[in-house]
Amino acid sequence: MKEYAILLDTTYCTGCNSCAYRCIQEFRYHDQAAKGLFRTFVQINDDGLYHKRCMHCIEPDCVANCPVKALTKSESGQVLYDAKKCIGCQTCVRSCKFGIPLFDEITKKIVKCSMCAHRTGQGKLPACVEVCSTGALQFGEYQEIRAKAKDMAVKNNLKIYGMVQNGGTHLFVLAKVDPATFGYPKVPAKDIKKGVSMGDLPAMPMAIAAVAIGGLKKLSERRALVEAEEKDKEPKK
């Protein structure tokens, strides 16, 4: 199973909200959107464009705190929501540091991006990415997108949001200035070691192997030491 992420280069975004409307049509939630309940929305602020949308955290607080497991973290990195399980307690609304889940007072359910799991599972782009006219939104495998975000940030002198916030997310935002200055919540970094993502898994076997090899080496050294000690204990001829 591949793990995915979205890269948002705000230096290409014009705030057209085609992503927002394409999302609405994809998920048929016009009535909720008309009340301001958007899964994704671009707010045109004075100093930049704030895309209010799920960050798909590596360690999602909403998942950790949901009492009925209506929110789950998928193998693809997407934080998914099962409306049938949801009891409308709004724990997720309160626990999300990014302020993302929106509560629909009528349905008593929440509104939140799924990163188009139904499309990505079929090899398609998320609807918002597909419609983006300028390519400000890009989608791909987590490690590639993460590396791309880092690379673009260095090349174009941009700030990255989503790399460390809340332990890291599956949405990386690039901007000329700190995105927290134009609408993105100031979310503290969490220990990145705790926040290792599925995408970091290639590093894990290596670490385990290193421990194992180290251990075997130690065992081997100990065996050699024991053998040497035993030799020392033998009567001198």
Binding site: M1, K69, T72, S74, E75, L80, A83, K84, S197, M198
Partner: peptide, 14 residues
């Protein structure tokens, strides 16, 4: 994170 509540493709949002 590999501990999945849903088999791939089974989640309603998939």
């Amino acid at each position: 994170n590999l501990k999945s509540a849903w088999a791939f493709g089974d989640h309603p949002q998939e």
